[in-house]
Design a protein around this nucleic acid. Structure first.
Lengths: 224, 224
DNA sequence: CGCATGGTTCGATCCTTATCGAAGCATTCC
DNA sequence: GGAATGCTTCGATAAGGATCGAACCATGCG
């Protein structure tokens, strides 16, 4: 009998297979409708609806109504980070597959985490941004350096925060076990990578695969 | 119906109130016996035993048998990190207490996370260690710089890894949302803080409170 | 206005799992 | 060896919650 935040409540929300599949699907970053999520989870529509209302009540999802469509998405990058952490443990503990399939390898290199890039490339990128002093680790957060602001606007990335969401935020990477860049800037960079066609998203997966030329471009801009 | 790591399995292990309380208690870093954990969780001994075997089977705990005592502890810093992440979401989502109690404030400043220090002090410390180039963010991990090895041995901290456990590792802080230092070095630093009596552990809590003099000493050594 | 589509609510069923008392092992102490 | 302690297993009970079909709301289209 303890006080404190109700961690069992949150964990049990993720602890149901149907809900876990839904959350996993939403880690791709795109909001999905109830029927899509039902399909993803392998349950009937009423069942999915019930799960979704529980996830909403638990504060893990946000809902955007557009006409007769209702799009569900992860509530925050923090929730995404938690799910990444759980995935990490499940990976470590689970049946160590003898040979990680090609898709897994691709996921380790680069993948989508909610709305930003994760994986080795993303971690390396954050390191370089620190090295180049475009970002600064401030006391409580990652901050954009003045030179960084110039740099990113020159790249056509709008770094003016619109909502209350922070521009930069650290997000722990489950494969590398170090932080990569989240926040609006992280999201904007992923947008650019896709828009420039440096990489494309693997269908029905979170993996992001760079084209040979795209990889060179990306590395020139962000890993130089 | 998806492939991949069984995240629901892991989350559902944490999702039971009794088990969550046990894990929470183990976040203090000290291994506990089944009866202590039963008390902590508010369940009978048989019930606790059943939960513990499930947590063991799930790979979340380790067991050390000593005579007729059996000590349960968290399996890894990764598991501790996952629990921190869940706590973070539960905090954010939960009933925002109008006024965070004094103990909560103390927890935010400094607390034990598994076997190392967490909280604002810990995050600030890691930042300074990077700034002073005692630690280096390598591609895939935090590494000890040559100067750092000298520095820590001079402080009487043994940084020679004994087990397979890494010397340095990042662990995401739920209150600050940035990484602090885990691994054997993180554990050794916490040991030193306690051994030097710079701080003491709050009873029945994860909070770590520095004495005025101890705080000065700590800051002189690690935040200079 | 009526119909089709996307989604939620209701009610009943079924299964999982948490729980505890009692009994059973194992280890240590006398 | 016997008694005591720490813990686990067994068996029975009970409660929670996941599931689906059917009925019910809401939005958009013709």
């Amino acid at each position: 009998m303890r006080e404190g935040p109700d961690i069992a409540r949150i964990a049990s929300l993720v602890g149901d297979p149907a809900r876990a599949n839904m959350l996993n699907a939403l880690m791709g970053g795109t909001a999905l409708t109830a029927s899509e999520l039902a399909l993803e989870a392998g349950v009937s529509l009423p069942t999915a609806s019930s799960h979704l209302s529980k996830l909403m009540e638990g504060g893990l999802l946000t809902l955007a109504s557009q006409g007769r469509h209702r799009y569900y998405g992860l509530a925050s990058a923090q929730v995404a980070g938690m799910i990444e952490a759980i995935i990490g443990v499940a990976e470590a503990v689970g049946p160590k597959r003898v040979r990680p399939g090609p898709r897994d390898a691709a996921m380790r290199v680069a993948r989508v985490c909610y709305d930003h890039l994760a994986g080795e490339q993303a971690v390396a990128m954050l390191d370089r941004l620190f090295d180049r002093k475009l970002l600064l680790r401030d006391d409580n957060e990652i901050r954009l350096a003045p030179s960084g602001a110039l740099h990113f606007t020159a790249l056509g990335i709008d770094i003016h925060a619109k909502a209350r969401r922070p521009v930069c935020r650290a997000c722990l990477d489950w494969s590398v076990r170090r932080s990569h860049l989240a926040g609006t800037l992280g999201a904007a960079i992923l947008d650019k990578i896709i828009a420039e066609k440096w990489a494309r998203r693997e269908k029905d997966s979170r993996a992001v695969v760079f084209s040979p030329g795209g990889k060179r471009e990306f590395e020139k801009v962000f890993l130089a």
